[in-house]
Write a protein that binds this DNA or RNA. Structure first.
Lengths: 161, 161
DNA sequence: TCTATTTAAGACAATATAGTCTTATAACCT
DNA sequence: AGGTTATAAGACTATATTGTCTTAAATAGA
């Protein structure tokens, strides 16, 4: 698995938020409902993204969470590093601690190339770019519906726990 | 983490075996000692690789495990799939079950490209190729020593539990 | 000030992964 | 046959990840 589940949830939530630049603070409960992610679990993940200054939260009525900067300035790489850490891009693929230029493991060079291709993809993909695709093509953010439905653009459904 | 620890251990062991085409069955204990991997844990992993017909084992004195075919015919991809499964190369990066051509997630296309680059690396790297690098440059297979030491090419050390 | 709403924080449980240990089984050797 | 050496299999433990639940704290509005 390339990304942890926490990381994937964080990306989906960030993407959801990027599609809603009209709104300010979005309640986490709304995101968790629409994306079918456990509310409390998602809250913890978003707290990590808040610690990384990618998001900021506000308590009480009309509270919620929002991106601290425009989605076009947020790359997937930032989200991934904030949750899964930078290890994927710094560590040896064979897990050998001393692997480096002077004492490389047999996979060192090839892995460096592949790793950079992953990194480039993540660094060159912004939330806004993904949100645009999602909106234009009604792409899916959750298991059961396209984003237009999730955002209530086609119909309105409000479920509380 | 791209590969599980089990998978990494399996790769290291397969690589170790590929460097020893002179020998037939190698005792798992010897591999686990040289690579600093728990003997019982490694045994289980090698059983998976045996189930996948990449290796075969033999019990009793002079027993052990060996590759079923020449290391030049074994790609990293085969080892990875045998242990971690094919999911990494088939599943959506955002973990959305229905993601596909007709209902792609916003990352679908970019991830397909990156995924293929990982796959190509694994499919185009053979155990023999890695073993050659390891032997020529005394590259490291375990934490504490180069492969020449591990293979006893420079000195001889035998430790039993 | 009181209540409702919302995030924060931390305890707790469930599951997956990683690792250890014991017993069984097969093969070889005397 | 009996003992030694090795893998096979499965129970068991440890740790990390994932997920749930309860309580606290902050904010808004009546």
């Amino acid at each position: 698995m390339l990304l942890s589940k926490s990381c994937v949830y964080g990306i989906r939530a960030a993407l959801y938020m990027a599609t809603r630049k009209d709104r300010d603070f979005i309640p986490i409960r709304e995101i968790s409902n629409d994306l079918d992610i456990s509310f409390h679990f998602l809250t913890k993940i978003l707290q990590q993204l808040s610690s990384a200054d990618l998001m900021e939260s506000f308590r009480g009525p009309n509270g919620g969470i929002r991106l601290t900067k425009d989605g076009s300035d947020v790359t997937l790489m930032e989200v991934v590093v904030a949750i899964d850490g930078i290890e994927l891009f710094t560590e040896c693929a064979l897990g050998l601690p001393g692997c480096g230029v002077e004492k490389p493991c047999p996979l060192h060079d090839k892995w460096a190339v592949t790793r950079d291709s992953i990194r480039n993809m993540l660094e060159n993909t912004t939330l806004t770019e993904m949100a645009r695709k999602a909106r234009e093509e009604d792409l899916r953010l959750s298991d059961d519906s396209g984003i237009r439905t999730a955002l209530g653009l086609d119909k309105e459904d409000d479920e509380q726990e």
